[in-house]
Design a protein around this nucleic acid. Sequence first.
DNA 1: TGCTCCATCCCCGAAAGCGGGGATAACATT
DNA 2: AATGTTATCCCCGCTTTCGGGGATGGAGCA
Lengths: 212, 212
Amino acid sequence: MNTKKTVAVVEDDRRLREKLVQVLENIKDIECIATCSSGEEALKVIPLRPPDVVLMDIKLPGMSGIQCVAELKKSLPKLQVIMVTIYEDSERIFKALKAGASGYLVKSGPPEQLIEAIRDVFAGGSPMSSHIARKVVQHFHLIGPSIEEANNLSPREQQVLTLLASGYIYKEIADQLHIGAETVRTYVKNICYKMHVRSRVEAVAKLRKDAY
Amino acid sequence: MNTKKTVAVVEDDRRLREKLVQVLENIKDIECIATCSSGEEALKVIPLRPPDVVLMDIKLPGMSGIQCVAELKKSLPKLQVIMVTIYEDSERIFKALKAGASGYLVKSGPPEQLIEAIRDVFAGGSPMSSHIARKVVQHFHLIGPSIEEANNLSPREQQVLTLLASGYIYKEIADQLHIGAETVRTYVKNICYKMHVRSRVEAVAKLRKDAY
DNA sequence: TGCTCCATCCCCGAAAGCGGGGATAACATT
DNA sequence: AATGTTATCCCCGCTTTCGGGGATGGAGCA
């Protein structure tokens, strides 16, 4: 491999930042092309010469690493970012992933983990420390057991429910499905009955939890 | 370590099943205590002596591995299951995770991956093949960029929206918040205005995408 | 041949919600 | 001092939805 994978490091703690750079320097297939000590700096320098992968701390002075990822992703959607942080709480993990991070490592891991992670995202993977992965998976467990439940709605009823969730009123739904408004009403009644809810609003809200 | 991690294998292909068992036999800290060739069989034998970890194929004759996990989890919620399969499509991945699987490996990987995965779930992790992890993470990207949007709702407005999503009508919300129904109506108007939607139903539906 | 779903349509009267205004007071920002 | 946001309340008239019925034909199953 003659083209090295390029990396940028965003980390406010100088000692740690330099340590990271040093670790990367010893790796043949990786080159660190930029270091930043704040999110603001990252937003300036990273777009000038986008690396393949960014290692991003979450706790930064000023803008958080999560905000920084969100911003970077707007202008560089293909940029791959690995969060490297001490936080293991679900909220931060999900926020980071939703902001566009591709990986999430806790700092306590060994340096090789970092190297592997860089290679992994480069190869199209999503490296996560093992407990982080578990938290992500648990998120699915929560919304989980509902696969089989709710879905006793007939195709037509599901259609109506979807349109309802899009904000259409009965008349509009009727027109789109080429049926009478009264028929739509009958469906809504049945939907409410089957989903054990009192109103179409609640049905739509419930749809959220049962949806994938 | 004097207590071995116990494992059960559910796999219909005999050759593969025996190969798996053989691999496991050479590992000091792991003991395979059961093998099944179908989901139905697994439902019978696994509860008799629940292992620490189950390796589960998805494509099985009769009931699918995913259904099997869902069933097993009902009676043994603590059971850890690793899907071992050839499928990499998002739908199956999410269904398996929602059904309660803790890990998801593709069969093409090396045998050591399996051993590591067993140790990983045992230690509270969630092993996933690298492309699987990426698909899971991408799921968050989809529901992602919305973190910053919608939330210009005032606390009171959010409260009203939440109650709305629970199916309450204006009068009921008014009573719970000790305010007039007219006030609730004003909030709903503002909510619709701020969220760029036409009705409370649509607002509730939109809430679903912005929440995680 | 019943039985149960499903999709479709209809009626009435009452309840809830909507559109589109207006208003007051408190507080923060500028 | 002016502006903006929040929280609170009010009115009128119209539209929409709800509750609670009933009805028909077709498909699929026992």
